[in-house]
């Protein structure tokens, strides 16, 4: 179980904390979407989970072990693909040979399958690839490590259109009951259909934390010009097709979640949104 326990973090003593008394628990496998405005602390949270930053207060634990200690047993169970990264100057085969021994569950065959999905071959020099290609290689390696937690920070940044399609297939392949994916992104349309769980953060707090099933069970997302529906909506926003609405799901029919609208609702009135789930 991954637990963020009352974490407070600031980049500098003079600056306002990015996260304050922040708590979060992730216990089951699935794909978690981490959404938030710029500067909300998404990347900070991911780095805290990976043990790359030290919280001023609180701790992050994985199965009871503080991730900040960076013990091999926890670090080998968490793989993060940051938004920006560099590869050392070497061939991909050498990179795999040097880095795979650290991950006991690494599968070379899976790595080759993932590369094929992204239309890449193993005979590459990883340092000489474009940003999008580097991202594809990093994602392939990350998935092949079969770590318990896979953290992806803006994974579709730099991917071309076929790459984004391949990314969705790629993630769907790697899903299992005991594996946790945490995807932080602004490009919600790229990942909306993949997510099992939505976490929204803002102002150093968790605004909203619910599974997709719960959201679909309690809320309905429609686009309409119907005045009566607009007046009775929990939240409404103008859209090209009329008004995009969030309504209570009274008839039990699931609708596709409009993540951007849901985020706006959470950002503007998280209390009302969360109260719907308490009924």
């Amino acid at each position: 179980m991954l637990k963020v326990d009352n974490c407070t973090f600031s980049y500098s003593r003079r600056k306002k904390p990015v996260l304050k008394d922040f708590s979060l628990e992730i216990s089951e496998g699935g794909i978690y979407g981490l959404l938030g405005s710029n500067g909300a602390g998404k990347s900070t949270l991911l780095y805290l989970i990976s043990g790359l930053l030290t919280p001023a207060a609180g701790e992050v634990t994985l199965n009871g072990i503080n991730t900040r200690l960076r013990r091999p047993e926890t670090v080998s169970e968490i793989f993060i693909v940051p938004e920006e990264f560099d590869f050392p100057s070497m061939s991909l085969k050498k990179f795999i040979e040097l880095n795979s021994p650290f991950y006991p569950k690494f599968s070379y065959e899976e790595m080759m399958d993932h590369l094929a999905l992204f239309d890449l071959t193993p005979d590459l020099n990883v340092n000489k690839l474009s940003m999008g290609q580097k991202k594809k290689v990093a994602l392939s390696f990350a998935m092949a490590t079969n770590t318990k937690i896979l953290i992806l920070d803006e994974p579709t940044n730099g991917l071309d259109i076929p790459g984004k399609t391949a990314f969705r297939r790629f993630i769907a392949r790697g899903v299992s009951d005991d594996r946790i994916f945490i995807i932080s992104t602004h490009q919600v349309r790229d990942v909306a259909q993949l997510l099992d769980h939505i976490i929204m953060v803002d102002n150093s707090k968790v605004l909203f934390n619910k599974s997709v099933m719960e959201i679909q069970h309690h809320l309905k997302f429609v686009e309409t010009l119907d005045r009566r529906l607009i007046d009775s909506a929990l939240y409404a926003s103008n859209s090209l097709g009329g008004s995009a609405l969030i309504l209570p799901n009274l008839d039990g029919n699931d609708t596709e979640i409009n993540l951007e609208l849901l985020f706006e609702f959470a950002h503007d009135d998280a209390e009302t949104l969360n109260s719907v789930f308490n009924k």
């Binding site: 990976s50 013990r71 968490i78 993060i80 990264f85 560099d86």
Partner: peptide, 16 residues
């Protein structure tokens, strides 16, 4: 000296 290299070192599952 560089953030990206620090990420690479600290995420490598070897002990300090």
């Amino acid at each position: 000296s560089k953030k990206r290299e620090r990420i690479s070192i600290f995420t490598c599952p070897a002990s300090n």
